[in-house]
Design a protein around this nucleic acid. Structure first.
Length: 348
DNA sequence: ATGCATGAGGT
DNA sequence: CCTCATGCATA
């Protein structure tokens, strides 16, 4: 039995979408819904204008480039060595010391202006700004030293659970909720209140720092909790949780786990201070492709018009930008995910 | 803190 | 091939 728990206590009727929380801001569902239906129409419209579309988008990008700084050079079209037979499971490793050249980062900005408009060419869409890092205003919060990772083969049990429940109802708290007097309304649902998630995330970070623990430490320490179906998590995930850059559902799922860790950690510290964890992950050499700014701008331009290009279009774009098709495909996937993440992309 | 990538589970 | 949750590698 490694993966069994799941099954929500009660299944609710598949209907009625109660107005979950106060109308502070759109829920993830709303966002999700907003970006789903919008392509068929476009597809038709632009179907015969492939070239036009691409050129247009590129033109847009071009203008952008000129208006910015113009610097057409490709840093590196890194390749990625995939692990074909190298086990990517938990292999013991410790080293991670990699020296890197300072590199000349002249322009480093992340243009986060993706609109989830229905019609790309349609005029005004709102642009959301980049997320400001204003969590606690604590200067000593750049704990990203991650020196060791434990890597469970596929400890994505949490993940799986989610998949089963999708974004409808997911209860996995070790606590024992269940009490839901009001039926027809929030049955099975556990207050996926974004406001509370926000405050919890902030409190979490605060207390974590207080404990003098890094995000990476938290991640690996999670395995020690022995919560069924829960392994360790990476620094990335902990960081994203704290900065709310995860999907709403993901936040909700992780909250109880991190909460449990926090309590355990504080309890442990109170009596003494023992942190018997830390393993080492195996050694992998995945290479991260670096898409140059110009190409990225083009991609963003395309994305604005068609967030979900067909294989053919992806291939075309890939060729024009001189990138591998898969890289382009993944880029679009990631872009779509970003669009949906829980970091108020419109209101708030 | 984030960008690009992998993989499971679904269509 | 997509969505989602996650992670390695990096800036």
């Amino acid at each position: 039995m490694m993966s069994m728990n799941s099954k929500q206590p009660f299944s609710m009727h598949p209907m009625l979408h109660e107005p979950k929380y106060a109308p502070l801001h759109s829920s993830s569902e709303a966002i999700r819904r907003a970006c789903l239906p919008t392509q068929s129409l476009q597809g038709n419209i632009f179907a015969g204008f492939d070239e036009t579309l691409l050129q247009r988008a590129e033109a847009l990008a071009a203008v952008d480039i000129v208006a910015q700084k113009s610097h057409p050079f490709k840093p590196d079209a890194t390749y990625h060595t995939m692990t074909t037979m190298t086990s990517m499971t938990c292999t013991p490793t410790s080293s991670n010391g990699h020296l890197h050249h300072p590199s000349v980062l002249t322009s480093h900005h992340h243009p986060v202006h993706h609109h989830q408009s229905s019609q790309g060419l349609d005029g005004d869409l709102l642009d959301h700004l980049t997320p400001g890092i204003s969590l606690g205003g604590m200067p000593g919060s750049d704990v990203c030293s991650s020196a060791s990772h434990s890597h469970a083969a596929h400890m994505s049990a949490i993940n799986h659970m989610q998949h089963h429940h999708h974004q409808q109802s997911m209860n996995m708290h070790p606590h024992g909720l269940g009490s839901h007097g009001s039926l027809g309304g929030s049955v099975g649902d556990v207050e996926p209140d974004p406001r509370e998630l926000e405050s919890f995330a902030e409190r979490f970070k605060q207390r974590r720092i207080k404990l003098g623990v890094t995000q990476a430490d938290v991640g690996s320490a999670l395995a020690n909790l022995k919560i069924p179906g829960v392994g360790c998590l990476s620094q990335s995930t902990i960081c994203r949780f704290e900065s709310l850059t995860l999907s709403h559902n993901n936040m909700v799922a992780l909250k109880p786990i991190l909460e449990a860790w926090l309590e355990e950690a504080e309890r442990a510290q109170r009596e003494k201070m023992s942190k018997p964890e830390i393993f080492n992950g195996g050694d992998k050499k995945r290479k991260r492709t670096s898409i140059a700014a110009p190409e990225k701008r083009s991609l963003e331009a395309y994305f604005a018009v068609q967030p979900r290009p067909s294989s053919e279009k992806i291939a075309a774009i890939a060729e024009k930008l001189d990138l591998k098709k898969n890289v382009v495909r993944v880029w679009f996937c990631n872009q779509r995910q970003k669009q949906k993440r829980m970091k108020f992309s419109a209101t708030h």
